[in-house]
Computed example of a mutant assay.
Amino acid sequence: MEANEISFENLPKAVAHLVSEIAKIKFLVERKEAVKIPQKRIPIDIVEACRIIGKAKPTVYTLVRKRLIPCYKNGKKLYFFEDELLDWISQGRKKTMQEIEAEAKLDFGKNFKKIGANLNKN
Results as ranks from 00 to 15, higher is better:
64 V>C: 15
98 Q>E: 09
70 P>N: 12
47 V>K: 14
37 I>G: 06
70 P>I: 02
84 E>G: 09
63 L>V: 02
31 R>L: 01
96 T>P: 01
116 G>K: 15
107 D>L: 15
90 S>A: 13
8 F>N: 09
118 N>K: 14
4 N>T: 09
83 D>V: 06
69 I>E: 02
86 L>T: 12
51 R>L: 03
92 G>M: 06
116 G>Y: 03
108 F>C: 05
24 K>A: 07
60 V>T: 02
64 V>I: 14
14 A>N: 09
32 K>T: 08
4 N>E: 10
78 L>A: 03
108 F>D: 07
93 R>C: 02
91 Q>E: 10
99 E>R: 11
9 E>S: 09
110 K>S: 06
95 K>C: 00
76 K>S: 05
74 N>L: 05
21 E>Q: 15
64 V>K: 10
9 E>Q: 11
13 K>M: 03
8 F>Q: 12
7 S>I: 04
69 I>S: 01
10 N>S: 08
29 V>I: 12
3 A>G: 01
97 M>S: 04
10 N>M: 07
25 I>A: 14
14 A>I: 02
110 K>D: 08
26 K>G: 01
79 Y>K: 13
43 P>A: 04
70 P>L: 10
113 K>N: 06
67 R>T: 02
106 L>M: 12
113 K>H: 07
101 E>S: 04
22 I>F: 13
79 Y>F: 15
99 E>I: 01
101 E>L: 12
118 N>S: 09
11 L>M: 14
46 I>C: 07
93 R>D: 03
87 D>R: 14
43 P>Y: 05
25 I>T: 12
113 K>D: 05
90 S>R: 14
116 G>L: 10
86 L>I: 09
113 K>L: 04
10 N>R: 10
45 D>I: 00
18 L>Q: 14
